[in-house]
């Protein structure tokens, strides 16, 4: 009985942690869709670049913390380049163009990553102070995972507050609703677009470094995470930030509990859940009724 309780508790903690980290990826995906009307297939690549740059910085300078700082910023620069030199020319076009461009970028990034870092999976060295385990009730839980849970939660809470309260959040919600009107009010929307894209890229980069030290970093991780992120965003409602957070928690928990019950069919649980949500609420849990 005790053994069962402890494995459920452990799965719950794991699920919440995974959910909050996935929320970092899904948040960017959903915000970019909500404001730019772009389905960004390259979002998983940004996450992957974060992981690989994290590996390089951490091994070059021997510091996880430096990796956590520098890699996401570098991913932000990559994001800016994609938006300014790629997507900007395609706004207002048929979404097929966005999909072709971002999908093409995703494939290129995957090829480049194999070229530069090789095909084997790598790992970021977690810092000494976060090694070992700590007991949470009957569960021995890795300190590093608790750290990932804490930092992801703090970041998501900060983004939530920012969108809900700040001027920037108001601007983001208004632009998601009617960009032309925002432009006509005297606000340069193209700068907002770049800003949101870079912001989403940085969040994905952070997730890449965080998970790079707990899972591993491999050339398939970009496409792996984009599928999870799409499930989250579809469940939560395309364009809704709140939806992405709740959706991510749901996906995290289902993945963790699924691993407990029937590890080989976890993915089926996820897609079944998505199908059910879509049947009951076609716009997702928070879709359409709310701007961001």
């Amino acid at each position: 009985m005790l053994a069962e309780f402890s494995s459920v508790l452990r799965a719950t903690m794991l699920g919440v942690q995974l959910g909050m980290t996935l929320a970092l990826v899904a948040a960017g995906l959903t915000l970019i869709f909500g404001m730019l009307d772009v389905i960004n297939f390259a979002h998983g690549s940004l996450y992957m670049i974060g992981g690989y740059l994290g590996v390089t910085v951490a091994s070059q300078f021997g510091s996880f913390w430096l990796a956590l700082l520098i890699a996401p910023l570098a991913v932000g620069v990559v994001g800016a380049a994609i938006e300014v030199f790629g997507l900007r020319a395609l706004y207002g076009r048929n979404p097929l163009y966005h999909i072709l461009l971002t999908f093409g970028i995703a494939i290129m990034v995957q090829g480049l990553v194999v070229e530069i870092w090789g095909g084997q999976s790598l790992r970021i060295e977690a810092p000494e102070m976060l090694s070992g385990t700590v007991s949470v009730g009957p569960v021995q839980y890795p300190v590093y995972w608790l750290f990932v849970l804490a930092i992801s939660t703090v970041l998501i809470a900060a983004v939530w507050l920012m969108i809900d309260r700040s001027d920037l959040g108001i601007l983001m919600r208004a632009s998601a609703h009617d960009t032309e009107m925002v432009d006509a009010l005297g606000i340069d929307v193209s700068k907002v677009f770049t800003g949101v894209f870079v912001f989403g890229a940085i969040l994905a980069g952070i997730a890449g470094v965080l998970l790079g030290a707990s899972r591993s970093v491999s050339p398939g991780m970009g496409f792996g995470v984009i599928i999870e992120a799409f499930v989250i965003v579809v469940i939560g409602g395309l364009g809704s930030f709140k939806g992405a957070v709740y959706g991510a928690l749901l996906v995290g928990l289902v993945t963790a509990y699924g691993a407990l019950i029937a590890p080989s069919v976890t993915d089926i649980f996820l897609f079944a859940m998505m199908a059910v949500v879509l049947m009951v609420r076609p716009n997702g849990l928070f879709g359409a009724t709310e701007a961001a």
Binding site: D167, A174, H177
Partner: peptide
Amino acid sequence: RVFGGLTVAENLRL
């Protein structure tokens, strides 16, 4: 074309 999801105060702040 007011921003329906924003409050009156938020519309004006923007």
